[in-house]
């Protein structure tokens, strides 16, 4: 790739961010020219001609002070509102986004497609479809940064963060880790390949036909003997999990939570944190027994048990990849 002064626009967000940038650049240029111009003009026009000069004192002007406070303030409020709306768009994934799970570690990106394929430092995605990433880290904080998409999101150990983008141009784009993460930080880079949908389908089928993420999750669910307590019919000592994802769960302490990815993750790793009303805190923690990737697989499996997911994502229905076991 050759030398350039402006980054490629390859997502639906990119032109929005760039328009905003041009507006700010115009405002900045206006003030820079105005201030520089005034300084140059005054400095020459009123240069000192004799060391004994004594200009008349001017104390100030209230109307001027109000003028040059209020006008810039109004302008910044435009910047704020516009910026916030672009930010809002960049943070709200459409419901039909393709779900991809990301686990970062020193110094690599591990990406899992719902259909099963796993990639390292490379991500293949179809053109024109929104992609939603659910990300966590196994060690320190990383940050998922694709300049051509104008998207960036920190990946924090101990919690899930999400971001999304919709590519608009096929090609190969940089993936950077943008949060300093130690020795090989600058080596924690990769490529995003945006492909025509048919090429993507071909690529998917060409990958080793492994189990889907949810199937791996189900296997893990069995290996860890979760079903001993979480019986499908609800007769076990722990709540049944079918239909859990996206529902509202009443807790023992009287509060309620929406069962999202973060809730399920927390319940696997810190079972006592949010105990379901009517149940005892019997479940042991699985911290240290399941990797972050494993947890994501379990989450996908539990999500797959909800026939009609209410929230954040409906990807697997559309993919038709996962069915109830």
């Amino acid at each position: 790739m050759g030398f350039r002064l402006f980054p490629e626009q390859a997502s639906t967000l990119a032109p929005q961010v760039d328009h905003l940038l041009f507006f700010l650049l115009a405002a900045a240029a206006f003030f820079t020219v105005a201030i520089f111009g005034a300084i140059f003009y005054f400095a020459i026009r009123y240069r000192r001609r004799s060391d004994r000069e004594l200009p008349k004192a001017i104390h100030g002007s209230v109307p001027l002070e109000i003028l040059w406070s209020v006008i810039p303030f109004g302008l910044t409020m435009v910047m704020f509102t516009w910026g916030a709306s672009v930010y809002f768009t960049g943070r709200s994934a459409p419901a039909d986004a393709i779900q991809i799970d990301v686990v970062a570690k020193q110094w690599m990106w591990k990406l899992q497609h719902m259909e099963g394929p796993r990639e390292i430092n490379e991500l293949h995605i179809p053109l024109g479809r929104p992609i939603k990433l659910t990300m966590t880290s196994e060690d320190v904080i990383h940050s998922f940064f694709v300049p051509a998409f104008r998207t960036k999101q920190d990946v924090v150990p101990g919690s899930y963060s999400t971001t999304w983008f919709q590519p608009t141009k096929t090609g190969k784009y940089h993936l950077f880790c943008a949060e300093y993460c130690g020795d090989r930080h600058s080596g924690m880079t990769g490529w995003i390949y945006v492909m025509q949908p048919e090429d993507y389908a071909a690529w998917l089928s060409g990958e080793t036909p492994g189990a889907t993420l949810a199937e791996n999750g189900r296997k893990l669910f069995q290996d860890l003997a979760c079903a001993n307590c979480h019986k499908p019919d609800g007769s076990g000592r722990c709540p049944a999990l079918a239909g859990l994802f996206g529902s509202t769960v009443s807790l023992a302490d009287g509060t309620a939570v929406t069962a999202d990815e973060a809730y399920i993750r927390e319940s696997i790793l810190r079972p006592a944190a949010k105990v379901v009303a009517g149940y005892q805190p019997l479940m042991p923690t699985f911290q240290g027994q399941v990797t972050e990737e494993g947890v994501l697989q379990l989450v996908e499996y539990i999500k797959s048990l909800s026939p009609e997911p209410k929230a954040p994502s409906q990807s697997r229905d559309r993919q038709g990849a996962v069915r109830n076991p």
């Binding site: 810190r270 079972p271 006592a272 944190a273 805190p281 479940m283 042991p284 923690t285 911290q287």
Partner: peptide, 12 residues
């Protein structure tokens, strides 16, 4: 070596 009785959440 930390251990607190009565809670499964040793980390917290």
């Amino acid at each position: 070596a930390f251990h607190l009785e009565g809670t499964p959440q040793q980390g917290e």
